[in-house]
Design a binder for these strands. Structure first.
Length: 337
DNA sequence: AACCCGGGGCC
DNA sequence: GGCCCAGGGTT
């Protein structure tokens, strides 16, 4: 049967060609869970330093469950999508409360921050459950193998791929190796551009390869919404006592992180700042942030409500987690770390 | 179902 | 400087 052959090809290819990663040699739930949260929307090279630091700082789920949110965010600083860090901690508290790691797909789904993808990876890799795993890599591989043109920006499209992957994984020897193999194939061979079909273990089953269709057409993805522009004027307040920072609490970007006191708006409605230390843009998925960092001379002219709720952080200890642009600015001007 | 959340690499 | 990537939670 064809599915059995596909699984054999993928599993054998994976065992020969997989990248050696810390959590892969002897996959345990804590390490795999942590890795999957860190590497959502994040390349291995980009997140490896953070993963290793998190594991060193929080070597097991009990220790992580007792960490403060600020501590976890500090380890996450610069990685982006900070909701993952807050949910990681919530997940640890949830698991510690259970007393043991969940062992099934359904039970993992109940863990904060764990959705179908992460639950699928952990339950198939650590507990050999025959459940499908569908991420962007898998959708790319399957859309090409079966010439599926559904728009992957539509969430419902994932169900089409989940059904196919679920059918395939039933024929696997080790479902975890099959699932990881499909993702690894997408990352290393069946790349978005210039896929290496000559090296692909599935080319004989691939309709795109057989028909000579253009890899660039699969998967299909509708164009994104235009980014909205936002303007932030930050005020740099640093003296011998320390640095003035404010924790963001709104349901908005950088929630839970600390920022310099700021005014949001294209033009400042007052003229206190004396000179501009930095002016740049920072691109997020849905927003283009235009930011200005001012060295304020006349603080009397700065509206008090912009300073309310600020805290002073001594320069002698680590600052709390800040968004990337401010983290880099602070490093540049205070010569820390 | 639509929308929101970061940051780095590549061209 | 613009484009690409893409899981989970919230609304």
């Amino acid at each position: 049967m064809k599915n059995i052959e596909i699984c054999q090809h993928i599993e054998n290819w994976y065992l020969k060609n997989k990248r050696e990663l810390p959590w892969r040699s002897n996959p345990q739930p804590y390490e795999v869970w942590l890795a999957e949260i860190v590497f959502q929307q994040t390349r291995i090279s980009q997140g490896m330093g953070h993963y290793l630091q998190l594991l060193e700082r929080f070597p097991n789920v009990e220790i992580l469950s007792k960490a403060t949110e600020d501590d976890v965010l500090k380890c996450w600083e610069g990685l982006g999508y900070y909701t993952r860090a807050r949910n990681l901690r919530k997940g640890a508290i949830y698991i510690a409360q259970l007393g043991d790691f969940p062992k099934t797909y359904d039970d993992w789904l109940a863990v904060p921050g764990v959705g179908p993808y992460t639950a699928g990876v952990i339950s198939s890799v650590c507990f050999r459950q025959k459940v499908p795993v569908v991420d962007g890599n898998v959708m790319r591989v399957l859309s090409r193998m079966f010439l599926i043109s559904s728009d992957i920006r539509i969430v419902k499209t994932q169900q089409i791929f989940r059904n196919i992957a679920s059918d395939l994984v039933q024929s696997a020897i080790h479902p975890g190796n099959f699932n990881q193999g499909m993702m690894e194939l997408g990352a290393l061979i069946c790349k978005p551009k210039n896929p290496d079909c000559a090296a692909c273990p599935l080319s004989e089953f691939c309709e795109l390869y057989i028909t000579g269709e253009n890899p660039g057409d699969f998967p299909y993805k509708s164009s994104a919404k235009e980014k909205t522009n936002r303007y932030f004027h930050f005020f740099f307040a640093s003296n011998a006592n320390g640095l003035l920072l404010k924790r963001r609490e709104a349901s908005d970007i950088w929630n839970g992180l600390y920022v310099l006191p700021f005014y949001e708006g294209e033009k400042l409605p007052f003229d206190a700042p004396e000179y501009l230390m930095e002016k740049s843009t920072h691109i997020l998925t849905h927003q283009k942030i235009h930011y200005y960092i001012w060295d304020v001379v006349n603080w009397d002219a700065v509206p008090q409500n912009l300073i309310d709720d600020c805290e002073i952080f001594s320069r002698d200890v680590d600052f709390p987690a800040m968004p990337r642009p401010l983290q880099l600015f602070i490093k540049k001007y205070l010569h820390i770390k």
